[in-house]
C-alpha cells in the first residue's frame, strides 16, 4: 500500500509544465496578477525574467491557459531560431497566412499591413527562453512590437549576458518587467505540501516537517526545478527501500539521510 503512495508522490515531482499542477503561492500569485494587469495595458512588451527554475515557463503557460479563452494568445515554448520559419509561424498563427517558401521580415510586414483593419485586436505572443534568440531576431521582434500589431511577453534567464540583451533591445520599449525569484523556506514548504496534497498524497505531505524543508531549501536554495528533481529522486529512493528494506525507512518523517542521498544522486551535492 505504501509503495503506491511513494510512487504516486514521486510522479507529482516530474519536471513537466502542466498548468493543472500550478501551485498558488502568495508571492507568485501577486506576480501573476501583475502580469495579467500588464497584458491589459497598452504595452509593447513585457519582460518576465529570473534564474532558471524559478517558474517563468509555468507562469507563461498559465497565462496562455487563462487568456486563451478570451483573446488571441500564442505561446512559443521553444524558440524558432530560423528567421523564415519564425516569421512563417507568426504569419500562420496571427493572420492565418500559410506562406510557402522563404519569408523574410519585409514580406511579413507586408502581410501585417494587409491584415490591419478597424476591428483588429492585438494578439499576444508569449516567447519562452528568449535568450536563445539571436540579436538580429530580437531586433526584428522589437521592430514588430513597435508597429503595435502584436504584443510580446518574453521570458529571459537572468544572467549578465541576458541583462545586456534586455538593455540593448528593450530598455526603452518594455514598460513592465517582472522578476521571479527562488522561494523562501515557508513558500517551499507550502509548495511541497500543496503539490502532494493536490495529488491526494496526504501521508507524504505530512512527512515534510519544518526541519526537513529547511534542509531541502538549503540544498536547492528554494529553486522549484531543483526541488522537483530532488523530491522525485527522494520518493524514488523511498520506494526502493519500501520494496527492498522497509525497516530502514520511517514513513512518518522524511529521512534527512535520504534527502541528502537524493541530492547526491541528482548532483545537487557534490560527493
Amino acid at each position: 500500500m505504501k509503495n503506491s503512495i511513494y510512487d504516486a508522490s514521486k510522479n507529482v515531482f516530474l519536471d513537466n509544465i502542466d498548468v493543472r499542477e500550478y501551485i498558488q503561492l502568495d508571492r507568485v500569485s501577486t506576480l501573476y496578477k501583475s502580469l495579467k494587469d500588464s497584458v491589459r495595458k497598452p504595452l509593447k512588451m513585457i519582460l518576465l525574467y529570473g534564474k532558471p527554475g524559478t517558474g517563468k515557463s509555468m507562469l507563461l503557460s498559465k497565462l496562455h491557459h487563462d487568456l486563451s479563452s478570451t483573446q488571441k494568445v500564442f505561446i512559443y515554448s521553444t524558440p524558432i531560431l530560423d528567421d523564415s520559419e519564425f516569421f512563417k509561424s507568426l504569419a500562420r498563427d496571427l493572420f492565418d497566412v500559410k506562406y510557402l517558401g522563404e519569408l523574410n521580415f519585409t514580406q511579413l510586414m507586408l502581410i501585417v499591413k494587409s491584415k490591419l483593419s478597424k476591428n483588429y485586436k492585438v494578439p499576444l505572443v508569449l516567447l519562452d527562453e528568449a535568450q536563445l534568440y539571436s540579436s538580429e531576431q530580437m531586433e526584428k521582434i522589437r521592430l514588430l512590437s513597435d508597429t503595435r500589431i502584436v504584443k510580446f511577453v518574453i521570458t529571459l534567464h537572468k544572467t549578465d549576458k541576458e541583462d545586456i540583451i534586455a538593455k540593448e533591445h528593450f530598455q526603452t520599449r518594455i514598460w513592465e518587467s517582472i522578476e521571479l525569484k527562488n522561494s523562501s523556506k515557508n513558500e517551499l514548504r507550502i509548495y511541497i505540501q500543496k503539490k502532494l496534497m493536490k495529488a491526494n498524497c496526504f501521508d507524504s505531505a505530512n512527512m515534510f516537517s519544518k526541519n526537513r524543508v529547511n534542509l531541502i531549501h538549503k540544498i536547492t536554495k528554494g529553486n522549484y526545478r531543483d526541488t522537483n528533481k530532488l523530491l522525485y529522486t527522494f520518493f524514488n529512493i523511498y520506494s526502493w527501500y519500501c520494496y527492498n528494506d522497509p525497516s530502514a525507512i520511517d514513513s512518518n518523517i522524511a529521512s534527512s539521510k535520504i534527502i541528502e542521498m537524493s541530492a547526491i544522486q541528482t548532483g545537487l551535492i557534490n560527493a
Binding site: I237, N244, E260, M261, I264, Q265, A271
Partner: peptide, 11 residues
C-alpha cells in the same frame, strides 16, 4: 542504493 549510501557516508 549501495553505492549511493557509500557516497553519502563519504559526504
Amino acid at each position: 542504493i549501495n553505492e549511493l549510501e557509500t557516497r553519502w557516508r563519504k559526504h
